[in-house]
Amino acid sequence: MSHRTFTITHENLLDVLTNTIAVGNRLVAPVRRGKKLFFRDVQEVQSIVFDFIQSDESPKDLVFPRVEPMLAHEYNAGNVYLIDFAEKLQPLPTILFGTRPCDAVALSLLIEFFNEGVGDPFVEQRAENLTIISIACTRADSYCFCTSVGVSPNDSRGSDVLLTPIDNDQYYGIVLTEKGNAFVKKGGDNFIPSEPKDVAQYIVTLREEFTPQEITQRLANAFNHPLWMDASLRCIGCGTCTYVCPLCSCFDIQDEGTQTKGVRLRCWDSCGFSLFTLHTSGHNPRHIQSERWRQRVMHKFSYIPQNRNLLGCVGCGRCSRLCPADMNLKEHLCTITKEMTEVKADR
């Protein structure tokens, strides 16, 4: 496969995926569990769901699992012995198939975040063994807002191969990385080399509601705006938005077991929980829910942009689709960009 671009039929694509499992790869793809759509390990490629707008959960747990054993300890005769799980981790080569481009962008940003500074051997080793085959979006729903946060329905960032469904049950594909190249190479003749094509006609058009610059500028002086309280009165603090977010990365560290034998776990956490910031003294820097909602929005759309020059959101819309209180981040951001005026800090 010398071409960067190719076409492949749906049937041949399934054969390629079947083969990746046969040669010992782990294949993770969107599958239904009841009414929900999750990324799960796939044994039979027939179970892969192609016709969907967005999965209920993001695939972030492939690099950042919701519970990660980091360390085990054992106490014996006055000594403590530690087992470093980062050294034991041997992630299987994994093909993540069928992600939406927004999720691929999010995964790459998440991996970048964990690798920055002190690094993270858990995320790093998983990421090294991960090949991401994304499918561009031909449909969107009212919750989607990727184009407003600088992501597009056929964004290629983070993907190793990007597929676009075209006519006659075929996909047009672009190989974006070495890993992508290796995946396509193994597929042999199933991939038909093709000249680069303009496939824009197949991609969904999504209206840009606001721009990243507009949001960050508006938020710069909005800490004390009454909108936070109004917008979050419905929030029940369940943390769903943070759990389904492909970019939320806050975590807790907890020990399980006894002092004699146990394990230290890293678990997903949420800035929406009151315990998140509670001091032992009883003092809580964010003691009401609106302050926690504000933190989530400010972190993603003001603090992360200040520190990393990017947004902590790819517009996947999951937080709003799945919010049991029907809070809608896109609408909230629209309000922010349209109505929020500067409110001077009251200190």
Binding site: M70, G119, P121
Partner: peptide
Amino acid sequence: MSTKNVYKP
């Protein structure tokens, strides 16, 4: 593994 586990005390 090339990166140290910073969580190992």
